[in-house]
Design a binder for these strands. Structure first.
Lengths: 130, 130
DNA sequence: GTTCGCATACTCGGATAGTGGTTGTCCGAGTTGTGTTGG
DNA sequence: CCAACACAACTCGGACAACCACTATCCGAGTATGCGAAC
């Protein structure tokens, strides 16, 4: 069990967006070369972030991507959920157990992690870095 | 990102061991049919638990598997670590970042989850169930 | 000068392939207890 | 009666195959802007 590379990219992309806020739309190509990944693959990730309403895309000439939500409102969890989805990390698969105690504990543990990720905002660490 | 099925199995297996403690060695076949997985695959999981010193195996006739540590000492994390390994869930892969702030936050979050899993012992939930 | 149309700069999304980890099976080898056989 | 031996009940571990999610690429389609030509 590990976080996907896509999550890795997505978090760094969002940090970059927040750092660049106020400037023009960022278009795919420059963003891809800055991140050092292929434009096509990057576009898949960006599409997921668009669907999660974190950024917006404007097509056509001078188009590109830009933040959609106020930068101070974007938590780590928002980004992670956009990529990884929102299913539980652990689901009991034994036939018998309808209210599996093991699953219960695992869910509690996950909740501890999630609540920390909901507290922390990307904006916080962008400030630290600059 | 999800926990492996093997982790799922391992947790339930350990719970079963703790429930059955004091009885004879559990051998592969009965355990497999109780868990509803193939004996061969089960043996892989058990081998991992043996290597983690959670259970021990005795070969030969009347052999089988039995608990190695006192049942009250076995935490969820012990079992999970035995299967999933102990690497961090998130590792920054951007070239530039040596002390990546994002990675830092992710590690904190993971630590929240891990410490909960270290607190909780399988024995606790076995008692609840019976 | 206004309008039409075309080229251009973008994103969107489906199809496809490589890769690696998870899940699972097969089988031969090693280990121990038990029962059997031959002296 | 007892020692050697064969056998059966176990686990151990390597090799291998199926499968699926992640990673990544290619390409055709859609969309908006701007420029130039024609009337």
């Amino acid at each position: 069990m590990k976080y996907t590379k896509a999550t890795n990219y997505a978090l760094h992309i969002m940090a970059y967006f927040i750092k660049q806020e106020g400037k023009d739309n960022l278009s795919l190509q420059p963003l891809a070369s800055h991140m050092n990944i292929s434009p096509t693959y990057l576009s898949k990730i960006l599409t997921q972030l668009v669907k999660a309403n974190l950024i917006q895309s404007t097509p056509g000439v001078n188009g590109g991507y830009s933040l959609r939500k106020p930068k101070a409102e974007i938590s780590f969890y928002d980004v992670i959920q956009a990529i990884e989805g929102s299913g539980a990390l652990f689901t009991c698969e034994m036939v018998e157990n309808h209210a599996c105690q093991i699953e219960e504990v695992m869910r509690e543990a996950e909740e501890k992690m999630v609540s920390h990720l909901k507290e922390k905002r990307i904006y916080d660490i962008v400030q630290k870095m600059s």
